[in-house]
């Protein structure tokens, strides 16, 4: 039974659980390796699953040693938090709902409790055995919480990263000619994106000293009053800086929607296509395009 260590908690149920976890680490890890959670995550080798199980058991023992098995923020979990998060994320990727993952983590509890009960001698006081079982159950409940929390945080962090990447990818500014820049907009415009579009476009106007800025909305599926308002703001801001903004790529259906909504784009120069907008801007810059050779006399 537990060694006599100079600890005030010696003999308490959590202390007993801690000693049990340390003593039976190998057996628990072996049993856990056969559970669906570990089997599904560590498909390559069983040894790897056992190794991961050992680390988790050690972390649990450390948390039990603090005397507060119900604390999900315990320092003992930090060493395995990343691993638990990976396991949760792997199961989520496999298409499991959070509830199903939770059930899988819960399936780790019965083997551990069975081992604990079997460890007590037959004449052990029933009350103490029950308290120890309760402590272990609370500890396993906390483990479940930690797995879910970590998995959810991972998912959110990934979403944030992807949102940033989307913003970067989705707003390239292209220099079409001396003094003409264009932004081809693809996808839905929300306020965060239109803010980025506005800022990048205006920055480009300064760096390129562009007198004309073309906003091409060919790839924007729908235009509502909010999108129109954002377009107007960008156009007005560009004008204040001394550049002229042209909105191009308005498809017939969108033109119809704009008219139906009663939106006033009267102060905005609009063109049907990017080519038309470029032609207009070149014309205003005094750089018209002419065919070098008359028709039928193509250069060889």
């Amino acid at each position: 039974m537990p060694e006599h260590e100079a600890e005030g908690q010696h003999g308490s149920p959590t202390w007993e659980v801690r000693d049990f976890l340390r003593r039976r680490r190998e057996q628990i890890a072996q049993r856990w390796a056969d559970e669906s959670l570990f089997r599904a995550v560590f498909t390559v080798s069983r040894d790897e699953a056992v190794e991961a199980g050992r680390a988790v058991v050690e972390a649990l023992a450390e948390v039990a040693g603090t005397g507060r098995p119900e604390n999900p923020a315990a320092a003992g979990f930090t060493t395995v938090r990343e691993q638990l998060g990976r396991m949760g994320a792997a199961r989520a990727r496999a298409g499991l709902t959070p509830a199903q993952i939770s059930v899988e983590v819960d399936a780790l509890r019965p083997p551990a409790v069975d081992l604990l009960v079997a460890d007590f001698p037959d004449d052990a006081p029933a009350g103490f055995v029950r308290e120890c079982t309760n402590a272990l159950t609370a500890l396993m409940g906390t483990l479940r919480l930690v797995v879910m929390e970590t998995a959810l945080n991972e998912g959110e962090a990934m979403l944030d990263r992807q949102r940033l990447q989307m913003l970067e990818v989705a707003t390239p500014v292209i220099r079409l000619w001396d003094g003409i820049v264009a932004v081809p907009l693809i996808g839905t415009l929300d306020s965060a994106r239109s803010q980025v579009v506005m800022e990048t476009l205006l920055e480009a106007v300064v760096t390129e000293q562009a007198r004309f800025a073309i906003l091409d909305i060919t790839g924007v599926p729908t235009v509502d009053s909010l999108v129109a308002q954002h377009l107007m703001k960008t156009v007005q801001a560009a004008r204040l800086m001394g550049a002229e903004c042209i909105v191009s790529g308005i498809r017939p259906a969108i033109a119809q929607t704009i008219v139906h909504l009663g939106l006033d784009l009267g102060t905005v120069v609009t063109r049907a296509g990017l080519a038309d907008a470029l032609g207009y801007a070149l014309g205003r810059l005094g750089a018209g395009i002419v065919n070098a050779a008359p028709r039928g006399a193509e250069p060889r």
Binding site: E199, V205, V206, K233, Q236, A237, A238, R239, L240, G242
Partner: peptide, 27 residues
């Protein structure tokens, strides 16, 4: 009015001051 910075232009538009009667230039 020449050389307005992007941040300034955005702020003015957000404030609703589009200064319609004003001519502007890049530099």
């Amino acid at each position: 009015v020449a050389g307005m910075r992007p941040a300034v232009a955005i702020t003015l538009v957000e404030l609703g001051l589009t200064l319609p009667g004003l001519r502007t230039a890049l530099s």
